[in-house]
Nucleic acid binder design. Structure first.
Lengths: 375, 375
DNA sequence: GGCACTTTTTGCGATTTCGAAATATCTAGC
DNA sequence: GCTAGATATTTCGAAATCGCAAAAAGTGCC
């Protein structure tokens, strides 16, 4: 129905995004990718070059014909700030205009912080990034746990920070830095991170598995993040488990702490190691019954998701990635054995190559996508 | 990133679609809806009128200002054909250019038909429609059970018709009628029917529940049908059930025949009434244990879907709609009791107002969306 | 009736985009 | 070295679109 078309300003913005993703490298390939005429696109590229956003970076001789004049974004044209936080820490990243990560910083929050403390810390770390960069960012993205309304910049609710209810996080930060500030849910930001910095570069359909203190997923479908009618899609941690008549939630079985307890035999109240990722990494791989049960639960959930969503790849994030490819392969195998229908199902589960930075990188991705070149 | 914009020909097509959906009724409201300038849109509307697709149908005086000149599509400007079939029957509808259903026809197929018989029947019924209309259709949509590739017009697989594998249904029909032919999966077509002819007129996010001979769903998200990476999304009938360690599939529990057997105590091999819808309609409503179990199973599945997809409405289709609002209300109530998380969840389940025609109407919707005015 | 006000529609110059042809720049083959 | 062929980029007139101002067509108040 609607053409994949864009108008002047958006055309330039789309060109910048394509160059940053390195999906297109010359005027002609950009024109093809953006479905614009070569002449129009040439004009916009010339403008981007004139304003210092891009340069020609040499020639690329194909097998035949006139060589393409390669286009590159100028890293020094500006930078984007990505922020991610939860109840324990705040992390920021600085990404230059070409999409290279230039700095990351983590700050541990005091125990049981309140909303004001978190907000203050976010602003302080952004200020530090700006000082180091010698310039304000072009845009700021914030990955926020809990419910978020990206439109208004309000953080609706997050139970692990005291007083975190209807916090005007977006407007507050915007007032301080006077640049576009965009909020996005944590996990959905990670979906974007996978697209811009991870293994989702050439994929339009994938799912992020996010077992951390809880268990949630985010869905990339047709190149767009699936948000749901009330910005609440992906909350499957609240599924009852086992599904038919269980008294638990999926959270209680598949979250990172839960999996650690199940694999090590710890009780509910026993203290957890401070760094779960390291703890999982140091585990000796054994085909214990507990291991098989955890793998089986994951396989069931992922198998169902695959039948429902028909996605291309599942990216595993969070501490459990330390269990490595072995864990993912075990899940795949188990899923194929659950039901005849699942045996033939295409299924790919991959531990994300992005580490703890994923959320902050995703937030930076949000900023990159929100920015458009000035008129 | 990309603007919601359209170009010349698509702008006219989008204008026609908006007029048909009665979401916009004047030049100015169309311009706002399509995000185009009033001047540009005026030109296109003048063209549509000049070519006989639309007319001005009076004035609408608002509270203030110059009255709008109402625009209407001319029903006699052409018609669209919608076809739906399964192993038992073929149904066609004729929808005029303004979106009014003008004729529907059903043909019962012989028992265990083969692919050639089905195709021949489809073509014959389309020919009859065209004869009655006195003109060939502007476009044809076909709602197809099983796997479908809308791009190539190939029907990949459907087990209940002999030899139904990689059938070039689209190209075959196109060769006969020389108009655009679009295939779409049965249930996904119904999602479009709900948008064009049912209760989904003002909704962008809803889910179709399709318990017929099997159990599947289709998902409308952000105004777009969710297809999945391999056109296979929504196949949750193949979920194992109960989820944790069940030896059944959801099909076996929630399909229309299964529900009928569960509610009436019939055995697997007992014959079913010929018209399940009528049978459900004639049922005396009793709070039996079986009823509660069926409702409970539906509640669990729908609750999980709601947490995952965060949709606005679930539309119930198929024979079970005959159980009425009572069934849907019972599911809603049951879902709220399953888990604490589900108690506060927004949840709306509605029996579709579209009857057995839904699939054919959806196919016609596919045709309407595929058509664009000639240059 | 006349005037202020509101909203829709139309008119027009400026801007943007397109399409196609012309030009540029390479490889391959003779 | 020259020519044919291929692909990329630029040029340029035509077409589409926009933004804004003007005109049209009502209501309500005096």
């Amino acid at each position: 129905m609607r053409k994949n078309s864009v108008d002047q300003r958006d055309l330039r913005a789309a060109a910048v995004l394509h160059l940053r993703s390195r999906l297109a490298t010359s005027r002609s390939s950009l024109a093809r990718a953006l479905d614009a005429s070569p002449s129009t696109l040439g004009l916009h590229v010339d403008q981007l070059i004139a304003r210092g956003y891009a340069t020609e970076s040499g020639l690329d001789q194909g097998a035949l014909g006139r060589p393409r004049r390669l286009l590159t974004l100028r890293p020094e044209a500006g930078w984007f700030a990505g922020v991610e936080f939860n109840a324990e820490r705040v992390q920021v990243v600085r990404v230059d205009f070409a999409g290279t990560v230039r700095a990351t910083e983590v700050w541990q929050l005091p125990a049981e912080p309140d909303a004001a403390t978190v907000m203050k810390q976010i602003v302080q770390m952004l200020e530090k990034l700006a000082r180091e960069a010698g310039a304000p960012p072009l845009a700021i993205g914030i990955g926020t746990p809990g419910l978020v309304d990206p439109r208004s910049g309000m953080a609706i609710h997050y139970s692990f920070v005291r007083g975190w209810r209807d916090v005007p996080l977006g407007p507050t930060v915007q007032a301080r830095f006077a640049v576009p500030v965009t909020l996005e849910n944590n996990l959905r930001a990670i979906a974007l991170a996978e697209r811009w910095f991870g293994g989702g570069r050439d994929l339009n359909d994938y799912v992020i598995l996010g077992p951390r203190s809880g268990f949630g997923i985010s869905i990339m479908h047709g190149g767009q993040v699936l948000r749901g009618a009330h910005h609440a899609a992906g909350e499957i941690g609240r599924w009852p488990w086992p599904l038919a008549g269980g008294s638990h939630e999926l959270h209680d079985k598949l979250s990172a702490p839960a999996v650690y307890r199940r694999l090590t035999g710890l009780f509910e109240d026993d203290p957890l190691p401070p760094d779960l990722g390291a703890a999982f990494g140091g585990m000796v791989a054994e085909d214990t019954l507990e291991w098989q049960e955890v793998v089986g639960d994951y396989a069931r959930v992922i198998g169902c998701l695959q039948l429902l969503l028909d996605t291309e790849v599942f990216f595993l994030h969070g501490p459990l990635t330390a269990l490595g490819q072995r864990f993912c392969t075990a899940i795949t195998t188990a899923a194929r054995g659950i039901a005849p229908a699942m045996a033939e199902m295409p299924l790919q589960i991959i531990p994300s190559a992005l580490g703890d930075d994923a959320g902050a990188l995703g937030a930076a991705s949000v900023a990159m996508e929100a920015w458009t070149p000035p008129a």
